[in-house]
């Protein structure tokens, strides 16, 4: 009894916090999205009808989901070797290396995006290198202000965060399992393929989620480096709130994004757990 009560008291602050700053705003958003019903008065599904009736919104949402999946996939791909190195080869300096990995986070996000602008711009470092190597005749303007610039910046930003859950999952792996695999004649890559990788999948799926979901709602990066061909669904939502001052439609669009995010999250959570069971 006592422990149950302790748990309840411990859970109370986060529960209150989430109610006040997550559930209530969500309810407010839901309510807002139902406004502007028929004839502008009362509650209704007018906003949702407008969204579903226009192929533009669904297409943009589809494209943004795809971009988010690419960003999440690439981040995980690049983060995995980092996390693996930290977990298995980091040794005593593991904490220091982890700190170095997170170091870019100390610099303001805006400054880091501007650094990318300097690298990718027509007079930027990357263009200069390509020109010098003779791979380009004239500076390529599409390196910056494009969807590829958005993906590049987002992947760069997310790699350290994607590495953390993978690192945590790799850390938890019982080293004797790998010794057993070696004893039974598995080559290192076989041990990785059949032992390490399956056991780290929960971390991988957590990392994917951690990147995918915030990217889905991203609008600052496209604003800065996207140009006209690199805008995401979040920019459409922002334009409804800030330019059209059409909050109901913007709220409905945000909730539509949830319809993409939640199934992906559930699917990944299930994948992670299933593989854990098998291992």
């Amino acid at each position: 009894m006592k422990s149950a009560r302790t748990v309840m008291w411990l859970a109370l602050p986060p529960a209150l916090w989430l109610t006040a700053f997550f559930l209530m705003p969500m309810a407010g958003m839901l309510l807002t999205s139902l406004q502007g019903g028929e004839g502008g008065a009362g509650l209704g599904l007018a906003q949702y009808r407008a969204l579903l009736g226009s192929p533009r919104y669904l297409r943009e949402l589809g494209q943004t989901s795809l971009v988010s999946a690419v960003v999440a996939g690439l981040s995980v791909l690049f983060a995995y070797p980092l996390a693996w190195f930290l977990a298995f080869r980091g040794g005593q300096r593991r904490a220091l290396l982890l700190l170095i990995l997170m170091a870019p986070g100390w610099v303001s996000y805006l400054l880091r995006v501007f650094a990318w602008k300097l690298m990718l711009g027509t007079g930027g470092a990357l263009n200069q290198v390509l020109l010098t190597l003779g791979l380009l005749r004239e500076p390529a303007p599409w390196l910056l202000y494009s969807m590829s610039a958005v993906v590049a910046v987002l992947v760069y930003v997310w790699i350290p965060f994607a590495a953390l859950p993978i690192f945590a999952a790799l850390e938890r792996i019982d080293r004797s399992l790998l010794e057993a695999a070696a004893d039974l004649g598995a080559r290192p890559w076989q041990a990785f393929r059949h032992v390490t990788l399956p056991l780290s999948l929960p971390g991988v799926s957590a990392a994917f989620c951690l990147v995918f979901i915030p990217t889905l709602g991203e609008y600052v990066t496209p604003l800065l480096v996207g140009g006209p061909r690199g805008q995401l669904f979040g920019n459409l939502v922002q334009s409804q709130f800030q330019k059209a001052m059409n909050w109901p439609l913007g709220a409905a669009m945000s909730l539509m994004m949830l319809l993409v995010a939640v199934p992906v999250m559930l699917l990944l959570a299930r994948l992670g757990r299933l593989d854990l069971g098998e291992g």
């Binding site: 602008k117 300097l118 711009g121 027509t122 007079g123 930027g124 303007p141 910056l144 202000y145």
Partner: peptide, 8 residues
Amino acid sequence: AQQISSGD
């Protein structure tokens, strides 16, 4: 101004 001064 930044976009113009960078030459992009």
